[in-house]
Nucleic acid binder design. Structure first.
Lengths: 344, 344
DNA sequence: CTGAAAGCGCTTACAG
DNA sequence: CTGAAAGCGCTTACAG
C-alpha cells in the first residue's frame, strides 16, 4: 500500500509521461521502448533514462486493445486439485512460456454452468487460445462459439467440435483392466465412476461393460457406484458399495483421486487389499508403489498431454489450416500387487 | 477454425455493430448492454435482439482500458504441481469467484528470475491484485514495486514488505517435530530441505537446529540433505543421506512431496519404516494414512490459507488502509506410525 | 431518455 | 530519424 491512494494505486507512468520527460513525441518514445522502427540513439537513450526514472512499464491492456490480443492462453481443467490436471497445467505452463505466452488457469470444478461462465470470460479477454477439458458433453454451444473465434484444443474429453483434441483410449484401457480382473477369477467387480455426464466416465464404463460381456457376465447396476472425483466422495461411494451383503471381490476406480479414497475407505472398513478386495485404478499416482500393496493401475501418458496440447494450439496460431486433428493416446496396464487371484 | 480466416479469428461484433443493427447510438447500446443509466424499454429490447443476432459479447480488454482494471487476481505459487499449492489455488479460485473476480495462475517453478518476469507480466496486465508465494527472499524489488501499485498478499513465505501476509509457524512446527523424534531416542536425525534460499526452509531448519541444541546434540551438516521439492529430487537426496556408513535413524522431510520421495527411496533401498528408519514429514497428505505405516506429520491448515488470502486482498481492494497484517497459523503434530522408539 | 464527443494507453501508417 | 494523427472497443460526463 505504501504511499498509494485508497485504491492502492498511485497513477502509473504512461508513454506520455515518459515522452514528456524525455522531451520527445509519444511515437518516438514508444519506438524506443519497444525497440522497433527507427529511433536515433540519442533519443532512445533519453527515453530509456526517462522510463527508468519513472518506473515505467507498459500497459498490456492498452497494447492488447491496439494490437488485437493478449499474449495469454487459457486452460480450463476439470479440477486443478486433481494431480492429473495439475501435472498437465504445469506442462502447459512450461511449454507456453517457452513461446512467450502466459497461462491463465480457471478451473471449472466439473460444473458445466461454471465452465460456460469461465469460457465466456476468457473469450471476452480476447486471448490467443484455450485448452479445455470439457466438464460435460451435453450442451457445448459455448465451446463451439469459442472454437469459431479462437484456437481451441480439447483435452482428456473429446467432443464433436471443429477443433483439435487429445484423448486417451479410455474404453480400451478399461476393457483391458477389467479383462485382467476377470482373468484373475473375479466376477463381482464394482466400479466407481463420475456419472454419465462425463465422456471419459462413459467410455471407461463402456470398456468395463464390454469386458464383462465378453466373459459372459451380466452387468449389475448395483455394483456401479457414482461419485464426483474427489478423495472424500470416493470414500463414501466405496463404503456404500462394500456394505451390502454380497460383497464385490474387486473394485475398479476411474481415477487416482477415487483410488485413494477407495483405499482409505477399505482400510477403515477393515477390508484388506488384495486379500479381501482387489483394487485396480485408472490413472497412476505418486504413491501407488509405496502403499502396501502397491496398486495395479491403468496408466495414462500424463506427461505428454500438456506439451502436445500447446503444440497443437500454436500450430493453429501460426495459421495451420487443417481439419480437426484428434490425437488418441494408448494406455498401459501396470501390474502391481493390489489384485489377487480369486480362488473360487 | 471453421469459417475463420487464417488467424482463426473472424471479426467479432462490437458495440458499434450492435448499435448500427439496432438503429441506436453506441452510447445507448452500451447502456442497454450493461444495464446502467436510463434506456427506453423499446430501445433496450432492440439492442438486446441485435446483440443476440450478432453473437455479441463484450471486449473486456477495452472495458478494462476504459475502466482501469481487469477483474482478475493473479496467483504465483511456487509450483502448481505441489498439492499444497494446488489446494490453495483451488480455494482462492472459489473465494474469488464468489466475489466476481477471476483467477490467473502463473507458477514460478521456484525460480526467482521466472517469478520476476511473471510478476512483471501480471502487473502489466493491470489486474486487481496478486497473491504470491515468493520463490526467494534475496531480491524482492519486483514485489516491493508490485505492492506499491496494487494489492498484494504474500502466502507461505513472509518477506519484509509493506503488504499483508499469511504464514505458518514453520520454526515452531519443526522444533516440535524434531523434539518428538529426540524424545523417542533418536539422535542422528537427517533432514531434507529446499536450501537456504527459501524462508520456509530456513525457518524449519532453524526449528530443527533449536530442537537439537535443546537436547545437547550438535548439528551435523552431513545429515542435512538438499533437494528441490519434488518427488524425484527427494528420492536422490534420500539415497545420498542413507547410503553412508553411519546411517541416520530418523528422517525429517520439509514437505509432502519430499516425504513421498523419501518413502519411495527408503523402500527401494530395502530400509523398513519405522523399524530401520523413522520418518516424520512437514505437511500432511492424502495417502499419509494409507501407507504402511501411516506417516507422522506436522500438519498445516492448508484449507484456510486460500480463503484468508482472498479476504485480505479484498479488504484492500475495498480501501482498507491499515498497516500490513501478518497472519501466522499454528501447526499441529499428528502422531501416526512412522516413528519408532529407538532402543539404544 | 438519447446522442455526439472525449478519452483510457498504446501503436502505426503517413508525412515530413 | 521524428512527429501529428488516427484508431483499437469501450464507457461516461455533458448537452439536449
Amino acid at each position: 500500500m505504501g504511499e498509494a491512494d485508497e485504491q492502492g494505486a498511485p497513477r502509473r507512468a504512461t508513454v506520455k509521461d515518459v515522452a514528456a520527460l524525455a522531451g520527445v513525441s509519444r511515437a518516438t518514445a514508444a519506438r524506443a521502448l519497444n525497440s522497433y522502427g527507427y529511433v536515433g540513439e540519442e533519443a532512445a537513450e533519453k527515453v530509456r533514462a526517462a522510463a527508468e526514472a519513472l518506473g515505467y512499464h507498459g500497459n498490456r491492456v492498452a497494447q492488447a486493445l491496439r494490437q488485437g490480443q493478449l499474449p495469454l492462453v487459457g486452460f480450463v481443467p476439470g479440477d486443478i486439485q486433481n494431480p492429473f490436471f495439475a501435472r498437465i497445467a504445469h506442462d502447459i505452463d512450461v511449454a507456453l512460456r517457452a513461446r512467450g505466452l502466459s497461462l491463465i488457469i480457471a478451473s471449472s470444478e466439473e460444473d458445466p454452468a461454471q465452465e460456460r461462465a469461465l469460457v465466456g470470460n476468457l473469450q471476452a479477454l480476447n486471448l490467443r487460445g484455450m485448452i479445455v477439458a470439457p466438464a460435460s458433453d451435453a450442451d457445448n454451444r459455448h465451446l463451439a462459439r469459442a472454437a469459431a473465434e479462437m484456437a481451441l484444443v480439447l483435452i482428456d474429453r473429446d467432443l464433436d467440435l471443429a477443433c483439435d483434441s487429445i484423448t486417451v483410449d479410455n474404453r480400451g484401457g478399461a476393457r483391458e483392466a477389467v479383462g485382467w480382473l476377470i482373468a484373475q477369477g473375479h466376477r463381482r467387480i464394482a466400479v466407481i465412476h463420475e456419472g454419465p455426464g462425463l465422456v471419459t466416465a462413459r467410455q471407461r464404463l463402456a470398456g468395463y461393460h464390454e469386458a464383462l460381456r465378453a466373459a459372459g457376465i451380466a452387468p449389475d447396476p448395483s455394483l456401479e457406484g457414482l461419485a464426483p472425483s474427489t478423495v472424500e466422495h470416493a470414500i463414501d461411494a466405496t463404503i456404500r458399495l462394500f456394505s451390502g451383503p454380497q460383497r464385490p471381490s474387486a473394485l475398479f476406480t476411474f481415477d487416482s483421486q477415487m483410488t485413494k479414497g477407495a483405499l482409505l475407505a477399505l482400510r477403515s472398513m477393515g477390508l484388506a487389499v488384495p486379500q479381501d478386495v482387489s483394487v485396480l485404478g485408472f490413472d497412476d499416482f505418486d504413491l501407488a508403489t509405496f502403499t502396501d500393496p502397491q496398486i495395479t493401475v491403468v496408466a495414462q501418458p500424463v506427461g505428454q498431454i500438456g506439451a502436445l496440447a500447446v503444440q497443437m494450439l500454436v500450430d493453429r496460431l501460426q495459421g495451420l489450416d487443417a481439419p480437426p486433428r484428434r490425437h488418441l493416446f494408448p494406455t498401459r496396464l501396470i501390474l502391481r500387487g493390489s489384485v489377487a487371484r480369486k480362488s473360487v
